[in-house]
Structure formats: C-alpha cells, structure tokens
Amino acid sequence: MSRVLNAIVAVCPNMGIGNNGNLPWHPIRLSNEFKHFRKMTSTPSAEGKQNVVIMGRKTWFSIPEKNRPLSGRINIVLSRELKEAPPGAHHLASDFSSALRLLDTAEMADTADQVWVIGGSSLYKFDCDTFLPEISMDKYRLLSGVAGVAEGMQEEHGVQYSFEVYES
C-alpha cells in the first residue's frame, strides 16, 4: 500500500536536533513550538482514526514518563535492542521497514490515519546522531498559507523560530 509519510523536526540554526537527550534550546520551553508539534501530529484527517507517530528508542525514552505514550496517537517505537514494546508504547518494530509493514496490517488499516516520523536522528538517516543531513531542496516545494500553521518569525523566551511545510 502506498502511504504518505510526514516528518516533523525542530532544528536550531546549525541543523542540530538534540543535546544530551534534550532539544537544543533546553531548558527553555517553547510552548508554541510544542503546541504546533502536538497539533500537527495528533490531528487526523479522517474521523474515527488516529495519527501514528514513529520514533526511535532514544526519542521514546527522552519523553518524560508522564507524557508517554503521546496521547491521541498510535505510538510505534523502533529498536533493534528491545524485545517487547516499552511500557506505554502501542507497538515495537525492529526497523523502519517493519514499522511500515505494521501499518499495512488489517488492525492498523482500520485505525491509522497520517503517519508522522518524529525522530531521532537515525530515522532521518544521519551520519551523526544529532544533525539533519543536507537536504536537496530542488526535490521539495515550500508551501505557504497552510491551514493551522503560523507564518513568519515566531519568538518565545528570546528564541526565534519559524514553521515551514514542504511537499515533495
């Protein structure tokens, strides 16, 4: 089955996505950035279904225990080390291909809507463990006026950021 995959990642200016298991700007909490993440990953396009979030083991354990699983979403954790889904996770897959096959099962076909890849770095095929690879932007088109996505520069606690949505 052909399926659209969405990726959502917050990066600092040098494309860093993490530092010591936290977001690069930790301990600053960017509540609008967090609200955007939650809205994008938990709002299904089909009534009666839930979005899926796929994350690596380190990303799963970087989420505070009280916030696991990410509510209102089907949580799939990828790990070659774990033998069973960690407490709270809905599914465990040994690799990304296995997670995609899981989405094609009858159970998931009835419940799963949009699929969001939320990290960590190995899911984005990084050579290192905390940076995005160079992206060939000629393969993507920047969308503007996307419903529910704030435009322009945002600022919280002295940290500036913007939301961008691309389509391939």
Rank of each mutant, 00 (worst) to 15 (best):
Q160P: 09
F34Y: 11
N75A: 00
F163V: 00
A85Q: 05
A85P: 04
K39W: 13
M108K: 06
L103H: 00
K66E: 15
G56W: 02
S42W: 12
Q50L: 11
L100Y: 01
V4A: 02
S168P: 13
A89Q: 06
L100S: 02
L132C: 09
P133W: 03
A147I: 07
R57Y: 14
P13S: 11
E65P: 07
P13N: 15
A109P: 05
Q114M: 15
G152S: 05
E65Q: 06
I135K: 11
M15I: 12
S136C: 12
L78R: 03
N32D: 13
A7Q: 01
G148T: 03
A106K: 07
A7R: 01
A89D: 07
T59H: 04
S122T: 15
N75Q: 02
M1Q: 06
G88W: 06
N20Y: 05
H91M: 08
R29M: 14
L78W: 03
H36K: 08
R73M: 14
S122R: 08
A109Q: 14
H91S: 09
E47T: 07
G88K: 09
G152C: 04
K58C: 12
E164I: 01
H26E: 07
E151M: 04
I63Y: 03
I135Y: 10
N51C: 13
R141Y: 08
A85M: 07
A93M: 09
A109N: 13
P86S: 07
E107A: 04
S121T: 14
G21Q: 06
R141S: 05
A106T: 13
N6H: 02
R68D: 09
F126R: 06
G158R: 15
I28W: 10
G120S: 10
S94R: 10
V117C: 05
L70K: 11
S45H: 06
N32P: 06
S144I: 15
A46V: 06
T105L: 07
P133G: 09
L70D: 07
P27W: 04
P69S: 11
V115D: 00
D138C: 07
A106Y: 11
D95M: 10
V11N: 00
L92K: 02
S62L: 10
E84P: 02
F37P: 00
E107D: 11
L100V: 03
A106F: 05
F96G: 05
H157S: 10
T59S: 10
G18E: 00
G48Q: 04
I8F: 01
V159A: 00
N20V: 13
S79P: 13
R38A: 15
N6T: 00
